[in-house]
Design a protein around this nucleic acid. Structure first.
Lengths: 208, 208
DNA sequence: AACAAAACTAAACAAGTGTTTAATTTAAAC
DNA sequence: GTTTAAATTAAACACTTGTTTAGTTTTGTT
């Protein structure tokens, strides 16, 4: 897939991503970005127009191919519960390896302040929800899934669990003895992912 | 309960709370707070020492009595599952009516930048986890709850679900037709709380 | 080699930042 | 009513902010 950004722009975008994720949009200055990226401070305005537009470009740069991955999953020949498990794995993997941008999306695009830029992000979320609905309705038709679940609230449970875990990284590192970055990542890939899969499975199948 | 802050300080703290929650710590200036609170800009330094210390004071001001509420719940004569449901209701209610501060806690206290102030907050979280453990172990002894759940990951599921929902407020307002603030709050109090209770119950009881 | 467009730079811009100062008003104590 | 402490103020401090300017260097094309 062809990117609309040249090497220099990508360099700036990736530095901005780490810094925004670390210190927030307002907490990061253009001089800060310029220093780390080893460019002149004027280059940000030159390439992106403004700091705000740099953020927009960053979103575009990062959220372009999740949609496709999800639609491919829909076509696979799998039982609904396995599709759900794969979807959860896909979500966690993807978000975990793009922590920066998702953190930014959550931090910067919730406030009214930047609501206008929310459009594209909102469309992405609607598409993802549609995919999830398709899978669950399939399972309901087959009589495997219960029918009284509120589907739009499942995404918050999947992503929210991950985010809340990750937002409290220092706390859980300490609590669960995850001393190295590898141990932490491994815990997410195995235990946390399994916990979420277990939770959603129970929610979809359990009859009281 | 006696507060260590006088009326003027509380006035400043509450204005700061709304502004920090709306626009983040870095996005809010002291002049901004002073204008809304109708005080002189020097008053923040006068009363709290600095902007950073104002944030610390705000945390202290807001997170002082959750601990007690939880410990009272532990003593109640209820079935474990009912205690869990009550705990969830307590969490959601409390966080929902103190949205500002919890949002701030999540936004401002995750980055390494402010890690030193994290101590008190971390203690609060550990205490809360202990309470949850007590309830669940009680249910496990009674043979009601399964034993292969990872207890520390239950809080992320409870709180994460709420937060993710609330972080995407504009999205869900639109999706679920929650046109007024009342409708939105009511949805949280009924549907979202029920969804989380249903999820945790299924997770704790379901056997595959 | 000559030209034009793109890439890049240092410097300056006006505006905003948190904090401190020194002076003044208000309140409390005697 | 005088004195002393607390509360409040406007102004100034030094510094950082995002953006623009005007000029220079690099690159690619003919």
């Amino acid at each position: 897939m062809k990117s609309n950004f040249n090497d220099k722009q990508i360099q700036i975008l990736e530095v901005a991503e780490t810094l925004f994720a670390e210190k927030g949009f307002d907490g990061t200055s253009i001089r800060n970005i310029a220093k780390v990226a080893k460019i002149n401070i004027a280059m940000v305005s030159y390439y992106f127009g403004s700091k705000e537009r740099l953020l927009e470009s960053l979103i575009v740069y990062r959220t372009s191919d999740l949609k496709n991955q999800l639609e491919n999953l829909l076509q696979e020949d799998l039982e609904p519960i396995d599709k759900i498990n794969k979807l959860i794995e896909l979500y966690i993997n993807r978000i975990n390896s793009n922590r920066g941008i998702y953190r930014i999306l959550h931090f910067e695009f919730t406030s009214k302040k930047r609501e206008q830029n929310l459009q594209a992000f909102s469309e992405l979320k609607k598409g993802n929800l549609k995919s999830l609905e398709t899978i669950i309705e399939e399972g309901q038709k087959k009589g495997i899934f219960r029918k009284d679940v509120i589907i739009p609230l499942i995404t918050p449970t999947i992503l929210g669990t991950f985010f809340h875990f990750h937002m409290n990284k220092p706390f859980f590192e300490n609590l669960l003895n995850l001393k190295t970055e590898d141990l932490y990542n491994n815990y997410i890939k195995t235990n946390l992912t399994k916990h979420i899969q277990q939770t959603i499975k129970a929610l979809l199948i359990y009859e009281s």
